[in-house]
Design a protein around this nucleic acid. Structure first.
Lengths: 216, 216
DNA sequence: AGCGAAACATGCGTGCACGCAAGTTTGCGT
DNA sequence: ACGCAAACTTGCGTGCACGCATGTTTCGCT
């Protein structure tokens, strides 16, 4: 039930994808992202330039993907792995866990990404990718009775993550110049918790309703 | 406090923007969107092609903008215009009101948009545009004490609207082939209400908390 | 009123996304 | 084991996005 659809074919596809990701990241780190041509990435990965963008629809996407690969699926798995706690806590903790750099070998890559505007944008966009896996995870916990609600909640969580990342990039890039109140520090975990907090009532309510519909 | 930043300058800018929007839509209706070149739009609006994409970053964006122009601002205004009802109802009703075609002169345009895949995508993307105006509107109702919450809620509402539009386009394009339960008919107003419903608890909670913080 | 600065429109050049039409590899049925 | 069908890669061509440099219009200030 992992990813295997048909075997060898899919396997080679994933290998190509990974080769492109890693080539993109390596070249970006070597020469700086601005001077990496798509042709270079393709050549380094051993495919044609045309094949390159059967996989990625922008250069930034390929670079960022090397850091964010598979994180979406891991968030979903982390939600499913917390059946004991409430849905809201499960989601929040899963998100924090997966978005908080767990000693990755990509530290300098992250620095690179947060430095260049074009890459920051692509990085923030990756928040949207959790939506579909997370929809499935939430739907599983809500009992599949109302997939529609799960989808809306997942989309909202994804949107909140995006907001948190935007805030994070703003404050880490431009110090803490906010004129508002209660700016929740620059720590990404705290920022994520604070940003997801307003959605807790919606998650709780959905869980209650599901439990009511399926008493046992 | 409308849009005026500096006067004549901004005025001409908006005029150019509108000329481009209308030219794009007119040409798309005449010849079909596939055979409209950016050069044609620019020429019809009386500017250079290069200027065209100082305003729009894709051809689809320009066409769709003619239909969705200023809807974002009107949603925000519609929220502010409902101080008597609760925040959740105010938001839901404002959204439904503005997204339900109020006898626009754009009926055939909407049909065109929902027909062509490239335009549908651009159309769905416009849902995100309500986020910023809506953030201000919600922040106003929450008393500006916590702009962060307002932003998350607005982003979630925008995400929910996007989900509703996606669902709408799917079901209207491919009949009602869904295998799930409780598919909420094809009516866009109903669909919007159903989709926004799961967020009601979050909006209510934020409103309660704001009221608690500012008793009178 | 006139001047200096800033915003804006435009031409040009480069790199990229993507449709299309082959050629090639993989998988499946018999 | 063999051959057919479908999926994937690739070359080619076209249109587009966007950076940069330059000429022009607009604005604020004295």
């Amino acid at each position: 039930m992992t990813t295997r659809r048909t075997g060898l074919r899919e396997q080679k596809k994933q290998a190509t994808r990974e080769a492109l990701r890693e080539a993109a990241l390596r070249l970006a780190l070597e020469r700086g992202p601005e001077s990496v041509r798509v042709d270079d990435i393709a050549e380094a990965a051993g495919v044609s330039p045309r094949t390159y963008n059967n996989y990625f629809s922008s250069r930034e996407q390929a670079i960022v993907a090397a850091v964010t690969a598979e994180r979406e699926a891991r968030v979903a798995a982390a939600v499913a792995a917390r059946p004991a706690v409430g849905l809201a806590d499960a989601v929040v903790e899963a998100v924090v866990e997966q978005y908080t750099d767990p000693g990755e070998p990509h530290r300098d890559a992250l620095l690179l990404i947060t430095t260049r505007p074009a890459l920051r944008e692509a990085f923030v966009d990756t928040a949207g990718a959790v939506e579909h896996p997370l929809t499935d995870a939430i739907a599983g916990r809500l009992g599949d009775t109302d997939p529609h609600t799960a989808r809306v909640l997942a989309a909202s969580v994804a949107a909140a993550i995006r907001v948190a990342l935007e805030q994070w990039l703003h404050t880490t890039a431009a110090s803490v110049t906010s004129g508002g109140l209660v700016v929740p520090s620059g720590s990404l975990p705290d920022l994520l918790r604070t940003t997801l907090a307003p959605l807790t009532p919606a998650l709780d309510a959905a869980e209650q309703q599901a439990r009511r519909r399926r008493p046992q």
